[in-house]
Design a protein around this nucleic acid. Structure first.
Lengths: 337, 337
DNA sequence: CATGATGTCTGCATCGTTGCAGAGCTGCCA
DNA sequence: TGGCAGCTCTGCAACGATGCAGACATCATG
């Protein structure tokens, strides 16, 4: 089953292994006559270079790893798509793994038995692992973090300005005249840094508008899934004074919330306006379509891969905090008829 | 930057390289005293085995590749998730690539410069490449095909019974008393084999019910995306006698169709009932929720990985046609209030 | 005490490729 | 004709790990 090696080709063509290698790679000068002869044998045997061997010799694999919590969460799927595309532009392929948000799975990555040595670099979208741990058990390969804010500047990190994004989303709702704007998705504990940034933005928008925040309207959720969005919305609807708008910390929560609203007979945006964050494709096709804050996913992927490549190639700058643009996309869930 | 090697550890611990290797792998008997001493040095230097070197020696990489058309299509994202999980159970990791449905990208995979030699096996969900081509340019690594029906038995192939799935979906609509049941998603050309199977099932259901098929109600779409589902639905609504139900060949088409229906002021299922296929999570949360045929994605992934592992381990049976179960999940889009 | 079995440990070869240094040939010029 | 450059081509060593055969010491056995 193993294919022919350079040696096999060399023997058959009566040349040295090195010459065959030169023909394959087009490196060194080879006379036309010889090149043709060797090429013929290469074709005849259908030679394929053994990339593992090449990698061993060259000390790199041409592969990076992308680790996300859940690949079937649309945001990560869309991001993964962009990462694969961006990596390809650098001649790299992408191994994808998921942690299911489990700390131990994230730790495994850094541990003794991780497969990390197979990759030239690692893009990590951490949920649970802390900066301390990352630093302590830091692997030997370059790492770029995605999304979660790690507060100290130990690693390259690519993300949108979460505070601004949340502020703009909330301001949009307030600007529509809504006065009881809820927030779904806070995570007031150590690993919920991104959520907390969004809560800050939510509060800032209120402050700028000179409006108080009703703490009752901030609902925490341990995850960012549809089901929890629906549950949170139900709880909000049960309040004596339910909200007339809600900013959800991601689109899935928002879609779940809209589902709960529809089921409860409320109209969106008539009774309650809804804004999400992530701009997953699904939001364009929901009924009503979803107003959302769109991070530039292509840019996130490009910046992350670019930064990783620089680290891999040793042109590593100091750990950089890279902020990627976002924009509010207004659709029916806030302004629909 | 490169980490310590076995040699480094060996030198420092004053033992042979081979002994260090034995300690690392727990292979051969090593005295407790020596094991402790070596382990101490391993820890001290934070040794990590170079997996590329190990792979070269052992002739396998512990990686498989999964190639899908588009990772951000929910069905493929969900499938990818299951594949990653299934592969992990075998100690394997998964490299994911996407072809965007481009023939040339699928061909690249099989070509001279593909990275295929890095992987022990390949799971391919082909769109455009034909069985002929696959066989002709067949790579040296084991391949298992997903989804698309390749008519001759040259490769292992895992899929649901597409004819039966489509038949059941259509029968469900007919059973509800609908009499003008449309079909969205036919692909009457060489690379649309799966779609054609679904059309066969659609016809069978009509035949079983003793009803004629109105050819006008079968709408072809080059892709299975939301936008095309919406467009197709609009075309159907423009007919003199529009349909009262529609079977979409996947959930995205169905969601797009529902979107078009809502926009046109038709009620689902009141005016038009909708059935999809794939059971993507989004369908549970759409308004109305989507009736669909659910392939057992976990089982698809497990069967595919299992089969691939058998090929890799040389216990390869003849190319097998593996049929995975599916079931109709009835939700609001056909029976809702 | 010789023998062989057992338990540890080691060195060499090897996986398939590429980096490096240099061998051999040709042609040109002084 | 000798010397030198330039072009091809080659062989050896190496990447870092593991498979294998065997060295050596210890111990039990007849």
């Amino acid at each position: 089953m193993p294919g022919p090696t350079l040696r096999d080709v060399a023997k058959r063509a009566n040349v040295s292994i090195r010459t065959v290698s030169n023909v394959v790679n087009g490196y060194a000068p080879v006379s036309d006559e010889l090149r043709t002869r060797v090429q013929a044998v290469l074709d005849e045997l259908d030679y394929r270079p053994n990339l593992i061997a090449r990698n061993l010799k060259q000390g790199r694999t041409g592969m990076i790893a992308l680790v996300v919590p859940e690949l079937d969460v649309p945001y990560f799927a869309e991001l993964a798509r962009e990462v694969i595309t961006a990596a390809r532009a650098h001649g790299y392929v992408v191994m994808i793994d998921q942690t299911d948000g489990a700390v131990e799975r994230e730790r495994e990555l850094l541990g003794r038995d991780s497969r990390a040595t197979l990759f030239d670099g690692l893009l990590l979208s951490p949920l649970a692992v802390t900066a301390e741990e990352l630093r302590g058990r830091a692997n030997r390969i370059p790492i770029v973090l995605l999304g979660e804010h790690i507060f100290n500047g130990s690693f390259h990190h690519v993300a949108i300005d979460n505070v601004a994004a949340a502020r703009e989303a909330t301001a949009h709702l307030l600007g529509l005249g809504r006065r009881r704007v809820a927030a779904i998705g806070d995570q007031p504990y150590a690993t919920g840094e991104t959520a907390q940034l969004r809560t800050i933005g939510y509060r800032q928008a209120h402050a700028h508008a000179g409006l108080p925040v009703d703490e009752e309207l901030i609902v925490a959720t341990p995850h960012f899934h549809r089901r929890l969005g629906a549950q949170a919305m139900e709880r909000l609807l049960a309040l004596p004074e339910p909200p007339d708008a809600v900013f959800c910390y991601n689109d899935l929560l928002a879609l779940g919330a809209m589902r709960a609203l529809t089921r409860a007979g409320r109209r969106v945006p008539g009774d309650v306006a809804v804004v999400g964050l992530d701009d997953i494709e699904e939001g364009q096709y929901s009924t009503p379509s979803l107003t959302t804050v769109a991070p530039d996913k292509g840019e996130i992927a490009r910046a992350a891969v670019e930064t990783l490549m620089e680290s891999i190639n040793g042109r590593a700058a100091n750990p950089a905090e890279i902020v990627v643009p976002h924009r509010l996309i207004v659709r029916e869930s806030t302004t629909g008829g």
